[in-house]
């Protein structure tokens, strides 16, 4: 399994409201609402922590789910969020200079 590193896109606005993340795209003004689990992943998407670590340390501990099941769900989710331009995916940690541009 290859590690995936996720970074929050700088092309969106985001704010947490009642445990859920509201996200609006600056490019097409589409509004999204992330549920609690997706919000945890979004908040942890610093470009430096792998998705596997995020799932293990944030999702599994919080929701007591099997790591394999949680990882598969998380991977599907980040792929979807990436297709919507909300998250950026990389196969290696993102450097600080690159993060400055992306975030």
């Amino acid at each position: 399994m290859n590690d995936i590193y996720i970074t929050r896109s700088n092309a969106v606005a985001a704010r947490e409201l009642g445990g859920e993340m509201m996200i609006m795209s600056a490019t097409d003004s589409t509004l999204f609402s992330l549920n609690e689990t997706a919000t945890l992943i979004w908040q942890a998407a610093d470009g430096k922590t792998s998705l596997a670590e995020i799932v293990e340390n944030r999702i599994c501990q919080e929701y007591h789910v099997e790591p394999e099941v949680a990882y598969q769900d998380a991977e599907d989710l980040v792929q979807e969020l990436a297709s919507l331009g909300i998250l950026l995916l990389s196969d290696q940690p993102v450097g600080n200079a690159q993060l400055e541009v992306m975030q």
Binding site: L17, G18, M22, L31, F32, S33
Partner: peptide, 17 residues
């Protein structure tokens, strides 16, 4: 709509959206 849902949620919680 998601927008009116968002407004209602902010209203109930007293959030200055």
């Amino acid at each position: 709509s998601l927008m009116s849902d968002l407004n209602q949620k902010a209203f109930r919680r007293g959030v200055p959206l």
